[in-house]
Nucleic acid binder design. Structure first.
Lengths: 192, 192
DNA sequence: CGCGGTTGAGAACGGTCGTTCTCTGGCCGC
DNA sequence: GCGGCCAGAGAACGACCGTTCTCAACCGCG
């Protein structure tokens, strides 16, 4: 019935394979040093289908960032739900989440902070996706802050704190910043 | 007396002109998108002398980072000295310094955070210079923390906080994160 | 006045990258 | 069994980058 012999399921599987490969490579080595050939080799998807799924490298990068955006929101929400009972514990659990994240062997810092550092000056799209992500992260904190009955400004403050842990851990390759940020958050909550 | 007709003063002036141009361009557009030709044009120093002063682009980048490292240490120390009297005010003045920095029209985030995001995965030298810088920054905070009679761990915590302000401001292009971080620091100090 | 050496400007080189094109082989309906 | 179409693999293309080289102009000095 379709004009093409390739149906939607194949294209979808292409997309996810490409996204998985690109995300791993971008995280490992940055965006500019990873060529489309490397993505093709890692994903096993030929160049022609690769360019059919993503007309340009920047489209692929944007899709990687948006996928990662969703993933962070979901895994963070799930982690907080799983590891904490009271509203205040939920806020502190965000920093335990960071601690676990930083300890993963492939951790190389926050993809959004890194990518803005690499391409923010030349790609407004990248900057915009990063802003959306950081705003969403702040909004997740806002919900937790509201539920704990804390002043709304705490959300922005905790977000700055968490971003600081990500940036510092990305440079020092250590999970210590997560614990330091957690302690600040604990003191902050105790002051209210 | 020398074998060459160029004396040391000229080479020094080359170096500083190259460094000034490279620093401006790297900050504006990142490292990889700025070619050596652009640095030659912006500095007015011909390619041959450019490569005599810095045998490779990575040497130039390292020199730019080290120069910026010294500059931050000095201007931060001077700012704190100038704008605060008591030990606790000195700590808060660090965040006022960030506020002023973020407000500058050419602010595009912390050069070290950005450069590690761009090249940390492929250039150990860049990562190392950034680590040295962030350690020195933390040590400056440690002196202020000691002088205020606060527990030593506050230094690392304040450093994470300040790096968070830098990373957040780099993405959102706003000086608000400096004020949010300052407020966290204020609460932190009030708790001791 | 001539000359060796050094300079500046830019061309050249080797490599890489994003993107497109070619070509060969195989699968489809008929 | 056959002709047309589509896919895959990779070559090709144009652009650019870091680095080196060429070459003509110029300098101080004898």
């Amino acid at each position: 019935m379709r004009g093409s012999t390739r149906d939607g399921a194949d294209v979808e599987s292409d997309r996810s394979r490409i996204l998985a490969a690109a995300r791993r490579l971008f995280n490992e080595s940055g965006v500019q040093t990873v060529g489309m050939d490397a993505i093709r080799t890692a994903s096993g998807v030929p160049l022609k289908r690769l360019y059919r799924a993503f007309p340009a490298k920047e489209d692929l990068l944007q899709a990687v960032l948006q996928e990662r955006d969703l993933e962070v929101r979901e895994t963070l929400a799930a982690y907080v739900e799983e590891h904490a009972d009271t509203p205040r514990e939920r806020i502190l659990a965000v920093f335990d989440y960071l601690d676990e994240w930083f300890g993963q062997p492939d951790f190389r810092g926050c993809l959004f902070i890194n990518t803005v550092g690499e391409l923010g000056a030349v790609s407004p799209r990248v900057t915009e996706v990063a802003r959306v992500h950081k705003r969403a992260f702040r909004d997740q904190l806002r919900e937790l802050v509201d539920a704990a009955g804390l002043p709304a400004e705490r959300a922005d403050q905790l977000a700055v704190l968490a971003n600081g842990a990500m940036a510092t851990a990305g440079i020092t390759a250590s999970r210590e910043p997560a614990r330091q940020a957690r302690e600040v958050a604990r003191i902050l909550l105790a002051a209210d």
